[in-house]
Amino acid sequence: MTGDDEAEPTRDDDGVLDAQRPGFVYFLGYGLMAPIARFVFRPTITGKKNIPKTGRVILASNHLSFIDSLVIPLTAPRRVQFLAKSTYFTGTGPKGWVSRNFFTSIGAVGVERGAGQAAQDALDAGRRILESDNAFAIYPEGTRSLDGRLYKGRTGVAWLALTTGAVVVPVGLIGTEEIQPVGAKVPRIRKIAVKFGEPIDVSKHGNASSGKARRQATDEIMAAIHALTGQELAGSYNESPPAGALHKIADRVFPRERR
């Protein structure tokens, strides 16, 4: 049950849902949701000019709430894609249709759950998005912070940037945890701030195959995010991710390199 302008998502041989070109559902969803969200929540948005209008760009953000994955696509000046579990796209009946079209409308790309190859599949999905000269949003912390502190970044973000040549735009989200606190099912109306920092070229750190280069690049990105948010630094990885499937995927995608 999809419109003629929105193709059914397909999976490759590794079980990763292919990124779809924006169709009618995306433009309709974005056209309706973005102005409504800006009117209701009245976010303070700064630094939109820092996001290149074309080409490969990674939006690397802190992570405080499930709502973050809506806030970033709805406030960025260009289409942004991110990962979501594939079952959001493969359901049947009216509920499956609503889920599929909603996540398509906000730029999500499905990945299969599972051990072993699943982590690389997810990274490869992000790489394909970037190699198509699109924007891709990820959370280097791997999962949302339950205590409001900024945790150490995992190096998947650096691998993506160094592999694809994408620039990294740090993103600072402030107040999103007040819209939908942990355990809350209904969002609340609260003021938030979205800060897009200056683009970072991490190529100076070295090759993607170097653990040292990945670590240094990730630390530079996290320092830029911290400068935007002013969060207290945890000084460690977020070792206790929520039990949700999407967060389990994120935990595999962004490994804990300790160099």
Rank of each mutant, 00 (worst) to 15 (best):
D5H: 04
E6N: 10
P9E: 04
R11I: 12
L17Y: 11
D18G: 13
Q20W: 00
R21S: 07
R21I: 00
P22W: 00
L28M: 12
Y30P: 00
G31K: 02
R42I: 04
T44W: 14
T46Q: 13
N50Y: 08
K53S: 15
G55A: 13
G55T: 13
L59Y: 03
A60Y: 06
H63Q: 05
L64S: 11
I67P: 02
P77A: 07
P77F: 06
R79V: 09
R79C: 00
Q81S: 15
S86R: 09
S86I: 11
T87Y: 03
T90W: 00
G91Y: 01
T92G: 09
G96V: 03
W97S: 10
V98H: 04
S99W: 05
N101K: 12
F102G: 07
T104K: 10
S105I: 05
I106C: 08
A108N: 06
E112Q: 12
R113T: 03
A115I: 07
G116F: 00
A119R: 07
A119H: 04
Q120M: 11
Q120E: 13
R128C: 01
S132I: 00
A135W: 03
F136A: 05
F136K: 04
E141V: 02
E141Y: 02
E141N: 07
S145V: 09
D147L: 05
D147T: 04
L150E: 09
K152F: 03
K152A: 11
G153A: 10
T155R: 11
A158D: 01
W159V: 09
L160I: 11
A161P: 12
L162M: 13
L162D: 06
L162C: 10
T163P: 05
V167D: 12
E177G: 14
Q180H: 04
P181T: 12
I189F: 12
R190S: 12
I192V: 12
G197W: 07
G197H: 10
V202R: 01
G206I: 09
G206C: 06
S210H: 08
R215H: 13
Q216G: 01
T218Y: 00
H226G: 14
A227S: 15
T229G: 03
Q231R: 12
A234Q: 10
G235T: 13
E239Q: 13
S240V: 13
P241Y: 08
A243H: 11
A243W: 04
G244C: 08
L246S: 09
K248V: 02
K248T: 06
R252C: 01
P255I: 12
R258F: 14
